[in-house]
Simulated scan of single mutants.
Amino acid sequence: MKKLLITSTFLAASTLSTSVLAVAPGSATCGWGNLLFEGQSGTPSHVLAATTNTSTGNNTFGMTFGTNGCSTDGTLTYGGKKMIDVSMIMDEFSEDVARGNGEAITAVAVSLGVSEEDRPLFKSTLHNNFNTLFPSENATTEQVVTSMFTLMKNDSTLVKYTV
């Protein structure tokens, strides 16, 4: 009887969680990443908030149960392109930055909206500042992305891609 009750509860919770996720839009204030970077604006803050939410899994939990500032009301929408999650390609990205070219660095440039004519500058800027981006082999994604946006903000051409 106890096994049947546990199984029934698990199935009900799974069904409820799945149905909630199907219509869960989240919100601009959803997840711990948004709490940590509250009041900040710009792409770097949004990337760091999203990375925090992804790495801790709290955004999914919050959307499932309506906690962490997440909303389960409304309709899912998509307002533009998505930046590549650098943490998923960190090894390839660091190798490409070291070389100054490659698929991973190109994918990051494209996901940031860097125009084709500005991509060589983007790649050379990252390449020439490899030690800033990767001060150690233990550099975190957050450190690398923050440093990348700082470098871009300090360049008169690349700054337009950080807004």
Rank of each mutant, 00 (worst) to 15 (best):
117 E>Y: 08
87 S>F: 02
150 T>L: 08
79 G>I: 00
141 T>C: 10
110 V>C: 00
126 L>V: 10
53 N>K: 12
77 T>L: 04
32 W>R: 05
61 F>S: 00
39 G>Q: 09
60 T>I: 11
12 A>C: 15
133 L>K: 01
25 P>S: 05
13 A>F: 13
120 P>L: 11
122 F>T: 00
140 T>I: 03
41 S>L: 06
66 G>S: 15
115 S>C: 00
136 S>Q: 00
130 F>D: 04
147 S>H: 05
154 N>V: 02
12 A>E: 02
103 E>M: 08
52 T>L: 14
76 L>R: 11
8 S>W: 03
133 L>F: 03
26 G>F: 07
130 F>E: 00
10 F>L: 15
33 G>R: 06
124 S>L: 09
119 R>E: 05
75 T>I: 14
2 K>V: 15
152 M>W: 11
150 T>W: 04
137 E>M: 05
4 L>E: 14
68 N>T: 10
14 S>W: 03
161 Y>K: 05
91 D>W: 06
45 S>Q: 12
110 V>I: 15
52 T>M: 12
50 A>Y: 01
160 K>L: 08
158 L>P: 01
112 L>K: 03
147 S>A: 14
71 S>I: 05
155 D>T: 09
19 S>C: 11
86 V>Y: 07
13 A>Y: 04
69 G>W: 03
10 F>Q: 07
11 L>D: 01
9 T>V: 15
86 V>L: 13
119 R>A: 02
160 K>P: 09
